[in-house]
C-alpha cells in the first residue's frame, strides 16, 4: 500500500531540510564575508598583480550563473583532478566563492566611501596598515556596507536552493522528495515557499536591527 497522504514525519523532513539550508547559508556566508573583505583590502592597498587577479576572478564569479559554477565544481573539477568531491563540499566551496565575489564589490565601495583625509591623518600619526584597517577603515566601511550586506544575505539564502541539483538534501530537495511521494506539487511547493519566505523575512528583520545598532552613533541627535 502506498502512503500518499501527508504525515507528521514530513514536517521533520522539511525541518531537517531547512536546517541544512540555513547551516549551509551561515557557513558559506561567513567564509565569503572573510574572503571577500580580505580581497577588498588587498585591492584597496593596490597590491600589484594579486589585486588585478582577484578582481578579474571575482568579476567572473559575479557575472556567471551559480548553477553553472556548481556544475563546474561538482562535475568538472573531479574530472580534471581525478578525485571525487562530496556534494556538501562542492556546494560549500561554490557558495563561499560566490558570496566572496559579491562581498568584495560591496566592501570595495564601502572602503572607497571613507574619506581620503582620514587615511592621510592616520598615516601622519604613524598608524600601520593593519591598525589603519582595524581602527579607521574597517568600522566606517562596515557602516556603509551593512545595508547592501543584509540584502546580499537574503539573496544568498535563496541561492542555497540550487545545491539540491548536486544532491545536497536541503529544503528544496526535501520538497522534491515529498513531492515524489505525495504527488501534490501545488501544496508541497507552496509550503516550501512559505518556509523560505519566513526564513528570509527573519533574516531581514535581524539585519535591520543590527543596522540600526551600527548606525546609532551616527544618527542625528534631534537637535
Amino acid at each position: 500500500m502506498r502512503h500518499a497522504g501527508f504525515t507528521w514525519h514530513d514536517g521533520a523532513l522539511l525541518a531537517q531540510g531547512l536546517g541544512v539550508s540555513l547551516g549551509l547559508f551561515a557557513g558559506t556566508f561567513l567564509i565569503g564575508l572573510i574572503l571577500g573583505s580580505g580581497a577588498a583590502v588587498v585591492r584597496h592597498f593596490r597590491v600589484p598583480a594579486l589585486g588585478t587577479l582577484l578582481h578579474t576572478g571575482l568579476e567572473l564569479l559575479r557575472n556567471s550563473p551559480v548553477l553553472v559554477q556548481l556544475f563546474l565544481v561538482f562535475f568538472g573539477v573531479p574530472a580534471l583532478i581525478h578525485q571525487p568531491l562530496t556534494p556538501v563540499f562542492a556546494a560549500g566551496l561554490t557558495l563561499s566563492a560566490n558570496t566572496a565575489a559579491f562581498v568584495y564589490f560591496i566592501a570595495v565601495a564601502g572602503l572607497d566611501a571613507v574619506g581620503r583625509d582620514q587615511v592621510e591623518a592616520a598615516r601622519a600619526f604613524g598608524l600601520s596598515r593593519i591598525q589603519l584597517v582595524r581602527h579607521i577603515l574597517g568600522p566606517q566601511a562596515l557602516t556603509f556596507a551593512v545595508a547592501p550586506l543584509v540584502g546580499l544575505a537574503v539573496n544568498q539564502l535563496q541561492v542555497t536552493s540550487l545545491v539540491s541539483v548536486i544532491g545536497v538534501v536541503d529544503l528544496t530537495k526535501a520538497g522534491d522528495i515529498l513531492n515524489l511521494r505525495t504527488l501534490r506539487p501545488f501544496a508541497v511547493w507552496a509550503m516550501v515557499g512559505v518556509l523560505y519566505f519566513a526564513a528570509a523575512k527573519t533574516l531581514t528583520l535581524l539585519g535591520n536591527r543590527w543596522e540600526r545598532r551600527l548606525r546609532a552613533h551616527a544618527a542625528p541627535l534631534g537637535l
Partner: peptide, 12 residues
C-alpha cells in the same frame, strides 16, 4: 517574489 527562491517559484 523577492523572498522565495527562483527555483521554488519555477517548480510551483
Amino acid at each position: 517574489f523577492r523572498n522565495v527562491p527562483f527555483v521554488v517559484q519555477v517548480f510551483f
